[in-house]
């Protein structure tokens, strides 16, 4: 049984359909990249998986937690789904450790004694064990994004969504963030990511999903998608970014 199962997902912004019937299954430990042109619906799709975008139709199921278009309380789903954003979105008034500890403290009511140890564990995992008491604006973009990853991991999600996590970074800071994502993948974390880092996607992902005009146009293992694209749209997309 898949860990993440999307069935018939539809979503419109006003009269503009963005997702037109998406079916996607992701198994535990799989790393899936959503690729496609801007406006193809890949970020919106990612955001539906933890309820940041409400769906108009379809069913989302993550580790047995099912929601459909009628559900409004999405916190049970969000407990299973972590998310890392393009713009990091750290809480600026809290230190790196406090950013990591906040949700375990207020949502899971973790005991104070465990919280600091949790922050240390998570920040060491992303290579920032020496930046516990730094505030976000005292960290580089790459470091901020790694804190954001640690913050998500502290809630022990079953799947982590990554929305263009390196797009806002200076080129020399991209590698350190990708190294952390790669390590998560190696450790068996289930990952669904929107990315423009094609080389990274090719090396790390088990499955590439090419989206076009709100539909999954083509998908498969990276080798197949890159070396033998089946459709003209994918060929053009790959050629355009080549």
């Amino acid at each position: 049984m898949p860990l993440v199962d999307l069935i018939g997902i539809h979503k419109s912004f006003g009269t503009n359909p963005v997702l037109r019937g998406i079916d996607l299954s992701v198994h535990e430990g799989q790393v899936v990249a959503l690729i496609g042109r801007s406006g193809s619906g890949k970020s919106t799709l990612l955001r539906t998986i933890n309820g940041l975008e409400h769906i108009d139709d379809g069913v989302i199921s993550v580790d047995g937690e099912k929601i459909d278009a009628r559900d409004t309380d999405l916190r049970a789903l969000r407990l299973k789904v972590g998310m890392v954003f393009q713009q990091f979105n750290l809480f600026p008034h809290l230190t790196a450790a406090e950013n990591v500890m906040l949700a375990p403290k207020v949502v899971k009511k973790a005991p104070q004694a465990e919280l600091r140890a949790l922050a240390v564990e998570m920040l060491e995992k992303v290579g920032l064990g020496d930046r516990l008491d730094h505030y976000p604006d005292q960290l580089s973009g790459g470091q901020q994004q790694r804190v954001a990853i640690a913050r998500s991991l502290a809630m022990r999600p079953r799947v982590l969504l990554c929305d263009e996590v390196t797009s806002a970074l200076d080129p020399e800071l991209v590698a350190e963030v990708l190294a952390v994502v790669r390590k998560l993948a190696d450790d068996g974390m289930t990952l669904i990511m929107v990315t423009h880092e094609m080389r990274f996607a090719r090396e790390v992902c088990d499955q590439l999903v090419f989206m076009h005009q709100g539909r999954i146009h083509e998908s498969g293992p990276p080798e197949q998608v890159f070396s033998a694209p089946q459709t003209e749209e994918l060929r053009q997309f790959l050629g355009g970014i080549g």
Partner: peptide, 8 residues
């Protein structure tokens, strides 16, 4: 949104 995604 980051706080929402943390189930707060």
């Amino acid at each position: 949104e980051a706080a929402m995604s943390l189930a707060m």
